[in-house]
Structures are given as structure tokens and as C-alpha cells.
């Protein structure tokens, strides 16, 4: 921007305008790319197999009821049970991981004991271990301890979530003044009571963020549930997808799309209501180091 002539300025603004236009074109294209497969899915879920075979459909058809009937006739795709299973696992695991991780973080922040630093170093150290690495020993243990085909091995381990402890600790450092803890002690509150009544409410924003992500991650899990759950009524929502792939629905295209739509709806709803917190949480999570 050497010369400040009117011409130069016009060039400059024109350049910015061109760049802006390019950015919007690319972003709109990407936005369409994000939604197009889902749109296609919903359209096909309402179309008959014949319509799908004839070619691309752009608008909703009228075969939703017929597709639903085929889906339910087979009784293999029991999405109601799938929803309940997924919900039980995801909600319990999320609750446990949030509560006990906050408790562990509280222990590290508030108390001074010999092994405090070692405990924290350990939590940091194990955070990076890929979770799949211990799966062979874990599955074997599940069989040996008679926990196969129960929800317990999918819920209990959530109590020990190193990454969540780390996040809670980082947040608590800035949010929980130790004076409050001391004041609570003077007022005669027990240590456990102080945690429940003083620390937990202060930690609400961090807990909310972790709860959203914990719930989504647990809900979408496929590996461990398919290793551990076998009975039909315990299958989780993502496990039902494999049923859609089976030969039963080979020529029922509309039905497969409808089944997929049903498995996707819960997370869609979660996202529509909580997207602001989710996107803020992603940004926050990256800055935690």
C-alpha cells in the first residue's frame, strides 16, 4: 500500500471483495457437502426401492410408512431397545466420568499430600496411551469376571478418564479459590460436603462441556460394545447399523436409509441444541495444553 491514490484504494477494496467472494463460495460448497449425504439419506428413506433404483431423487417420496413397516417386520432392527441401551451406557458413563474426574482434580488442587505430584504426573503420562492397546486383556478379563453381555464393563471404566481429570484440573485452577474451601471448613462443612456443595457448582461450565463430549463419544462407540454385548436387546444404536448391512435388507434400499436415519437422529438433535457449546468446547479443549 505504497501509494494512497484513489485508484490504489479501489484496487485494494476490489481485491478484498474478490477474496471474500471466493471464501463464501468455498464455504457454501463445503456446507452443502456436509449436509448433502444426510439429505440424500432422508429423501431415500421416504422413497420406495423402485424409485431409488430409477435414479437420483431430489424430493421426498411417499413411502415412509411402507419402509417403516418393512423395517419393523423383521424385528431385528429394534431401535427402541438400541436407544435405551445406548442411553443407559452413555448417560451412566458420562455421569461417572464427570463426577469422579472432578473429584480427582479437586484432590490434586486442594490437598497437599506426599503422592500428589506423582499422581498428577501419572495421569498426564497415561493420557496419551491409545485406549485400544489394552483391549485384548480387557476382553479376556470381561469373560473371566462374568461380565460378558452386561453393561458394567462399558460403564465402570469411565470413572478413570485421565483426559477429563486433566481438563477439570486446568479449569479448576482458575475457577476455584482455596479461600472458599477454607471458609466452608470454618463454617463446619465436611470435606466431602465442601466438594459437593461448593466445588461442583463452581465447576458447572467445565462439567457441562465434558458431559456433552463424553455423552457423544460414548454414544458413538462401536468397538467395545460389539466386543462385549451380544444379546439382541442389549445392542447399542451404532451396533444396529451392522444389522442394516445384512442380507435381510439387501434389496430394501429405502428401508436401509430409513434405519440409518433413525440411528442418526439422536446425535442430530443433540447437535442442533448444543452446537454452540460443542464448538466452544472444541476450541477450549485444544488450548488446554
Amino acid at each position: 500500500m505504497g501509494r494512497k491514490t484513489v485508484d490504489g484504494y479501489a484496487n485494494y477494496t476490489a481485491g478484498i471483495l474478490a477474496k471474500k467472494t471466493l471464501i463464501h463460495i468455498v464455504c457454501i460448497f463445503l456446507a452443502i457437502l456436509s449436509i448433502a449425504p444426510f439429505y440424500l439419506m432422508v429423501v431415500n428413506a421416504t422413497s420406495s426401492s423402485l424409485q431409488i433404483r430409477m435414479g437420483l431423487n431430489y424430493f421426498f417420496g411417499s413411502s415412509l410408512a411402507a419402509n417403516y413397516k418393512v423395517l419393523m417386520d423383521q424385528s431385528f432392527f429394534n431401535f427402541y431397545d438400541g436407544f435405551i441401551s445406548s442411553f443407559i451406557i452413555a448417560a451412566s458413563a458420562t455421569f461417572l466420568s464427570c463426577y469422579f474426574s472432578t473429584l480427582a482434580a479437586y484432590s490434586i488442587i486442594v490437598y497437599d499430600y506426599k503422592l500428589r505430584k506423582a499422581a498428577y504426573a501419572f495421569i498426564l503420562g497415561v493420557m496419551m496411551i491409545p485406549s485400544m492397546v489394552s483391549s485384548a486383556g480387557f476382553v479376556d478379563m470381561v469373560y473371566k469376571w462374568n461380565m460378558y453381555d452386561t453393561y458394567w464393563p462399558l460403564i465402570i471404566p469411565a470413572i478413570a478418564a485421565p483426559a477429563v481429570v486433566f481438563f477439570m484440573k486446568q479449569y479448576m485452577e482458575g475457577a476455584l479459590p482455596l479461600e472458599i474451601v477454607e471458609a466452608s471448613r470454618i463454617d463446619g462443612c465436611s470435606e466431602f460436603g465442601t466438594f459437593n456443595r461448593i466445588a461442583l457448582p463452581i465447576m458447572k461450565p467445565a462439567i457441562a462441556t465434558q458431559a456433552i463430549f463424553g455423552f457423544i463419544t460414548n454414544w458413538n462407540q462401536l468397538f467395545m460394545p460389539s466386543m462385549i454385548l451380544s444379546s439382541m436387546e442389549k445392542k447399542t444404536m451404532p451396533m444396529l447399523v451392522e444389522i442394516l448391512k445384512s442380507n435381510r435388507y439387501k434389496t430394501e434400499y429405502g428401508t436401509v436409509y430409513l434405519g440409518l436415519t433413525i440411528t442418526i437422529i439422536p446425535m442430530f438433535v443433540v447437535y442442533i441444541f448444543l452446537s454452540r457449546y460443542i464448538i466452544a468446547g472444541v476450541a477450549l479443549g485444544s488450548l488446554k495444553e
Binding site: 439419506m41 451404532p238 447399523v241 436401509v256 436409509y257 442430530f268 443433540v270 460443542i278
Partner: peptide, 18 residues
């Protein structure tokens, strides 16, 4: 742009398979 990240990966794979 963030939307696909939230949706169950299993369902998305099946969708692309279809």
C-alpha cells in the same frame, strides 16, 4: 462444517456404503 464430526461414524460409513 463441524456437523459430520458429531454423527455416529458407523451410520456414516453405512450411508457411504449405500
Amino acid at each position: 462444517l463441524y456437523l459430520p464430526n458429531i454423527i455416529t461414524a458407523a451410520s456414516i460409513s453405512m450411508l457411504f456404503l449405500s
